[in-house]
Deep mutational scan, measured.
Amino acid sequence: VSKLITEALSVSQERVGMSLVALKKALAAAGYDVEKNNSRIKLSLKSLVNKGILVQTRGTGASGSFKLS
């Protein structure tokens, strides 16, 4: 899941990052079952932020906008 998230964010052209909703849409378009794996998406977002791979530009927790650091 982390690999899919970083790939989706690297393609994004948004300056402020990608919102959680837009990220879920991009994952669904890539063929990932978002409804079934919603908790996995949130956990991997939090772990990527803690590792310093992603930066959360808006919001708290697993909601808001994210971009690559």
Score class of each variant (00 low, 15 high):
10 S>I: 04
22 A>E: 00
10 S>T: 13
12 S>P: 02
18 M>Y: 02
42 K>R: 09
23 L>S: 00
63 S>T: 13
16 V>A: 14
52 G>M: 06
56 Q>R: 12
10 S>A: 11
42 K>Q: 09
44 S>I: 06
50 N>P: 10
26 A>G: 00
62 A>M: 11
35 E>Q: 10
15 R>P: 07
53 I>F: 12
63 S>M: 12
34 V>Q: 05
9 L>R: 14
23 L>I: 10
10 S>Q: 07
46 K>E: 11
49 V>L: 14
2 S>W: 00
26 A>L: 08
6 T>I: 10
48 L>P: 00
60 T>S: 13
11 V>L: 08
59 G>A: 08
69 S>T: 12
2 S>Y: 07
46 K>G: 00
46 K>V: 07
36 K>C: 02
36 K>Q: 08
39 S>E: 15
31 G>I: 04
50 N>R: 10
50 N>V: 03
27 L>G: 01
24 K>A: 01
43 L>P: 02
45 L>K: 00
58 R>V: 10
43 L>A: 15
35 E>L: 07
33 D>L: 12
6 T>D: 05
1 V>Q: 00
23 L>Q: 00
38 N>L: 14
29 A>F: 05
25 K>D: 07
46 K>N: 02
14 E>F: 00
19 S>K: 12
30 A>M: 13
62 A>K: 14
68 L>S: 09
16 V>S: 13
69 S>M: 07
1 V>P: 14
39 S>F: 01
56 Q>G: 13
38 N>A: 15
20 L>G: 03
15 R>K: 15
66 F>I: 05
2 S>V: 01
31 G>D: 01
61 G>L: 07
50 N>H: 06
19 S>C: 08
19 S>N: 10
6 T>L: 06
16 V>G: 02
46 K>P: 00
50 N>L: 04
47 S>F: 03
31 G>T: 05
65 S>A: 13
56 Q>L: 07
5 I>A: 01
58 R>Y: 05
21 V>Q: 15
52 G>D: 10
44 S>Q: 10
4 L>W: 02
46 K>A: 12
53 I>V: 12
5 I>H: 00
20 L>W: 12
63 S>G: 14
48 L>I: 02
19 S>G: 15
14 E>P: 02
18 M>D: 04
30 A>R: 14
68 L>T: 11
21 V>K: 15
54 L>W: 10
6 T>Q: 13
36 K>L: 04
66 F>M: 07
27 L>A: 02
52 G>T: 08
63 S>W: 11
63 S>R: 08
40 R>W: 06
63 S>D: 13
3 K>C: 03
68 L>I: 06
55 V>S: 14
38 N>Y: 10
2 S>K: 15
17 G>V: 09
18 M>C: 08
20 L>D: 04
23 L>T: 00
63 S>L: 13
63 S>F: 12
15 R>G: 08
57 T>N: 11
32 Y>C: 03
19 S>T: 11
42 K>P: 01
67 K>L: 07
28 A>L: 10
6 T>G: 01
14 E>C: 00
54 L>Y: 04
54 L>P: 10
1 V>Y: 05
48 L>C: 01
54 L>T: 06
69 S>L: 08
30 A>L: 06
41 I>C: 03
63 S>V: 12
31 G>V: 08
24 K>F: 02
28 A>W: 04
16 V>M: 10
24 K>L: 03
5 I>K: 01
3 K>F: 01
28 A>D: 05
41 I>R: 02
31 G>K: 13
20 L>F: 13
50 N>G: 09
48 L>K: 00
29 A>N: 13
37 N>Y: 05
14 E>M: 01
25 K>M: 01
50 N>K: 09
7 E>D: 09
59 G>R: 08
64 G>C: 15
58 R>T: 14
67 K>Q: 10
55 V>M: 13
19 S>W: 08
6 T>V: 08
37 N>P: 07
5 I>P: 00
64 G>P: 15
66 F>V: 10
40 R>D: 15
54 L>V: 15
34 V>P: 06
66 F>R: 10
15 R>Q: 08
24 K>W: 02
15 R>N: 14
35 E>S: 08
53 I>P: 06
49 V>F: 11
5 I>F: 04
33 D>S: 12
67 K>W: 06
44 S>T: 14
36 K>A: 09
59 G>V: 10
66 F>S: 09
21 V>L: 11
20 L>C: 06
56 Q>E: 15
5 I>C: 03
46 K>Y: 00
47 S>T: 13
24 K>N: 04
34 V>I: 09
39 S>V: 02
59 G>E: 10
15 R>H: 11
38 N>K: 09
28 A>F: 06
36 K>N: 12
30 A>W: 08
48 L>M: 10
13 Q>T: 08
53 I>G: 04
30 A>P: 04
49 V>G: 01
65 S>D: 13
14 E>S: 05
42 K>I: 14
11 V>M: 05
25 K>G: 06
61 G>K: 13
25 K>P: 00
6 T>W: 01
52 G>K: 09
9 L>N: 00
40 R>K: 15
10 S>K: 07
29 A>D: 10
40 R>P: 03
32 Y>H: 11
29 A>L: 05
1 V>F: 11
59 G>N: 07
4 L>M: 14
15 R>F: 05
58 R>Q: 14
39 S>K: 13
46 K>R: 11
33 D>E: 15
14 E>I: 01
30 A>Q: 08
59 G>K: 13
68 L>F: 09
44 S>P: 01
52 G>P: 03
57 T>Y: 08
33 D>G: 02
51 K>R: 15
56 Q>K: 14
65 S>T: 14
41 I>Y: 03
25 K>E: 10
32 Y>L: 13
68 L>K: 11
13 Q>N: 06
65 S>N: 13
28 A>Y: 09
22 A>Y: 12
8 A>G: 02
13 Q>S: 06
52 G>W: 02
2 S>C: 03
33 D>Q: 14
30 A>Y: 05
49 V>D: 03
33 D>N: 05
1 V>H: 00
60 T>N: 12
18 M>T: 12
36 K>E: 03
30 A>I: 04
68 L>Y: 07
26 A>Q: 04
42 K>C: 08
54 L>Q: 14
42 K>N: 04
25 K>Y: 00
3 K>E: 13
46 K>F: 03
39 S>G: 10
64 G>T: 15
7 E>W: 05
12 S>M: 10
33 D>W: 15
50 N>C: 04
44 S>A: 15
58 R>E: 13
10 S>G: 13
63 S>A: 12
6 T>F: 02
42 K>A: 09
10 S>C: 03
46 K>L: 07
48 L>S: 00
22 A>W: 09
12 S>V: 15
64 G>H: 06
37 N>E: 13
61 G>Y: 06
57 T>S: 12
32 Y>F: 10
43 L>Q: 15
57 T>L: 12
38 N>W: 15
12 S>T: 04
42 K>H: 08
64 G>N: 04
34 V>C: 07
35 E>D: 03
44 S>H: 08
53 I>K: 10
34 V>G: 05
48 L>A: 01
2 S>I: 06
43 L>K: 15
29 A>G: 06
11 V>S: 11
52 G>V: 06
66 F>G: 08
12 S>E: 03
16 V>T: 12
60 T>I: 09
64 G>Q: 14
8 A>T: 03
48 L>Q: 01
44 S>E: 15
21 V>H: 14
28 A>K: 13
13 Q>A: 05
33 D>F: 15
39 S>I: 00
18 M>L: 10
45 L>V: 08
58 R>M: 10
27 L>W: 04
27 L>S: 01
15 R>S: 10
4 L>F: 08
1 V>K: 03
30 A>T: 11
49 V>K: 07
9 L>H: 00
16 V>H: 12
7 E>I: 01
69 S>A: 14
56 Q>T: 14
49 V>N: 02
31 G>M: 06
19 S>A: 06
41 I>W: 09
31 G>H: 04
3 K>D: 08
20 L>K: 06
35 E>T: 11
54 L>N: 05
10 S>W: 01
14 E>Q: 02
16 V>L: 11
46 K>I: 08
36 K>V: 02
41 I>T: 02
17 G>C: 07
33 D>C: 05
14 E>A: 02
55 V>Y: 08
36 K>R: 09
35 E>M: 08
44 S>Y: 05
5 I>G: 00
51 K>T: 06
69 S>E: 15
67 K>E: 12
31 G>P: 03
15 R>D: 15
57 T>D: 10
8 A>C: 08
38 N>E: 11
42 K>D: 10
45 L>G: 02
49 V>T: 06
52 G>C: 12
50 N>D: 09
68 L>D: 08
8 A>W: 12
14 E>T: 03
64 G>R: 12
46 K>Q: 06
31 G>A: 06
55 V>E: 13
54 L>I: 15
55 V>D: 05
48 L>T: 01
62 A>S: 11
34 V>N: 06
44 S>V: 15
66 F>Y: 11
68 L>P: 07
10 S>V: 07
1 V>D: 05
24 K>S: 01
15 R>I: 04
64 G>Y: 11
17 G>S: 06
15 R>Y: 04
26 A>H: 07
55 V>C: 10
